[in-house]
């Protein structure tokens, strides 16, 4: 049962557009699926391989700009950005990995944090290349209604899910976790830690970049502040996985649902709407204290807590 659950879930999700939801709800759904893709990719690098990234916006943004610049510079459809982003973002990740992966633990995290910020500033200032703060607008939208976008991102999510699952079950997965648990021990067991950390980074960056390329085509507009955002992309990528469950397969999906819905809900509260980051901060503290393994990871514990609460009342 459990084995087929993901496939059943994907099949059910594929039927959702038939419900005839309005375009706002479809938009939320698309965001949820997109964030689960980013969460899965962050989880691969940081959850399984233990290399905590605070800069996934860098990969998201490079993917998004690959798509956008193919449109503005070469005049071809932004959708070509999807395949192109795989190449561009992977090469970019190789460079980043060469520089950053010699750092360990918090130093790696800080380096990735800075790369996200650096790229934002670069994109803002290289006006000739990126269009600067004006951003990139894709004038010819492929479709007005959202069903097709939904299917595209759902397919990306399904592929990412299968990819992550296959990788984790393979030799790579064992090596990633070994590196997370103890890099010196892993090294002395014959694991080329630099190589496998680079693989983890490239895979993760590739998936996030793919989501970025999709984002450009879906939203039709990107600018540096949006796609290279620290608090709206990098940090949310971390939160999606922390809330859902680090190093679990379904954690990022659960986390994406909660984070996207929560963000929308908080934004609609009058007066407090602009303070949604404050709420996220509080949520993160609560999660770290009470559910350090996330909702999926600490599900038994959570059930127990809720069960007790129910009995008490």
């Amino acid at each position: 049962m459990n084995k087929y659950f993901p496939y059943i879930a994907i099949a059910l999700l594929a039927l959702v557009p038939l419900l005839g939801l309005n375009s706002y709800l479809m938009h939320i759904l698309i965001l949820v699926v997109m964030w689960s893709v980013i969460g899965m990719s962050w989880n691969l690098l940081s959850g399984y391989c233990g290399q905590v990234s605070f800069g996934h916006a860098a990969f998201f943004g490079v993917g998004a700009y690959t798509s956008g610049m193919l449109y503005t510079k070469l005049g071809i459809s932004g959708w070509w950005g999807l395949p192109a982003s795989i190449v561009v973002v992977t090469l970019f990740a190789l460079v980043i990995g060469y520089i950053c992966l010699r750092l360990r633990g918090p130093y790696f995290a800080l380096a990735t944090l800075s790369i996200g910020v650096i790229l934002r500033i670069v994109a803002e200032n290289m006006v000739d290349v990126t269009g600067g703060d004006l951003g990139i607008m894709i004038r010819e939208r492929s479709w007005i209604e959202k069903t097709r976008y939904y299917y595209i991102i759902l397919a990306i999510a399904a592929l990412s899910f299968v990819l992550v699952k296959q990788v984790i079950a393979s030799k790579l997965g064992y090596y990633f976790v070994a590196i997370r648990e103890d890099q010196d021990a892993a090294e002395s067991l014959g694991i080329d830690t630099t190589l496998y950390k680079t693989i983890a980074l490239c895979l993760s960056a590739m998936i996030t970049g793919f989501a970025g390329a999709f984002y450009t085509n879906y939203m039709g507009y990107i600018d540096p502040k949006v796609v290279f955002a620290l608090h709206d992309i990098s940090i949310i990528a971390i939160m999606v996985v922390m809330v859902g469950g680090v190093a679990t397969f379904s954690g990022p999906i659960v986390g994406a649902v909660i984070m996207v819905v929560l963000a929308e809900a908080i934004r609609s509260i009058p007066m407090l709407g602009t303070a949604h980051h404050t709420f996220f901060g509080i949520l993160l503290i609560v999660i770290i204290i009470f559910l350090p393994n996330g909702i999926v990871g600490d599900f038994p514990k959570m059930k127990k807590l809720l069960g007790l609460a129910r009995r008490a009342s």
């Binding site: 648990e181 103890d182 010196d184 021990a185 090294e187 002395s188 067991l189 694991i191 830690t193």
Partner: peptide, 24 residues
Amino acid sequence: SKPHVICRQGIARTFQVVKPLQRM
């Protein structure tokens, strides 16, 4: 050479302060 290269050539070691991969 790096430890993983030496290990591949056939020299393995244990640690005085044991380093199990804890959560595995």
